[in-house]
Design a binder for these strands. Sequence first.
DNA 1: CCTGAAATTGCTACGGT
DNA 2: ACCGTAGCAATTTCAGG
Lengths: 157, 157
Amino acid sequence: MRVSNLHTVELDGIDKIILEALMENSKTSISKIAKQVGVSSTAIHQRIKKLENANIIGDTVTLLNYKALGYKTTAYVGVFLEKSVYYKDAINDMLKIPEIIEAYFTTGNYTIFIKILCKDNDHLMSVLRNGIQEIKGIERTETIISLEQSISRQIKP
Amino acid sequence: MRVSNLHTVELDGIDKIILEALMENSKTSISKIAKQVGVSSTAIHQRIKKLENANIIGDTVTLLNYKALGYKTTAYVGVFLEKSVYYKDAINDMLKIPEIIEAYFTTGNYTIFIKILCKDNDHLMSVLRNGIQEIKGIERTETIISLEQSISRQIKP
DNA sequence: CCTGAAATTGCTACGGT
DNA sequence: ACCGTAGCAATTTCAGG
């Protein structure tokens, strides 16, 4: 890894192999990566520390299989706000709705764009009617329901 | 954890503590969870194995900090297909565009709805013009650019 | 479903090239 | 920047209540 004077970072081949292994499985053992690359475990360990310090490696999380827990409906909702001033309050209200798992402030048609995870369509309707559309400043919403997720991945470093 | 005869799953309090700890940090040590709950490491280990076998625990991944790697633009693109028949081929073509990190088959206005990660707006324009809009069967697209991500989380079990 | 002990594996610090 | 060693901590297996 090389850090230029303009805050950009150059990863070499070994860094990329490390990152790809950890992206796929955060529990990949250092020794396994070391064997694959052909250097010592210590070297890999030192590189990982550097990548962590450079803030390139972020969180390590366990993803739950929500379908197994009964969450089978994913939807996106475009939110039209009366005035952008309501943005902060709207986000605060949205934080209280656990089904909202992502929210973005956006350009274009919508002011706020959110991702929702629900058990089924009835649950989604209830979240929309009794949750989201009750939030102050929301004019109207447009809902996009996902029938199938076809791609889900990270970008390779 | 209890599995009813209708394929639904009941998690007890200990399961939920385990899952929440691992969701936040997949590297949380078993022994730490064990101390918090007040049982042996072995018991926690066995429960984790069960949750894995029940497919409730999914992947454990390391998230990269894409901003540190120069990726600063997130966008969503709604895709209008001429005919739904083109869906499979379109997804196959999209798999070849690494900037596309999520894709959904959806109801509503759009046929396909995708999430894109780019370095900057020029990069985004290039992906749209030279990548996505070249795919066979795509009539037109609508782009929503995220200015700020305000919420990002998982649902609690 | 739990425990405790033993075996295994992996992490991390240190000294050196 | 990398290596080897060695001590330590954690995971995982096993026998048993």
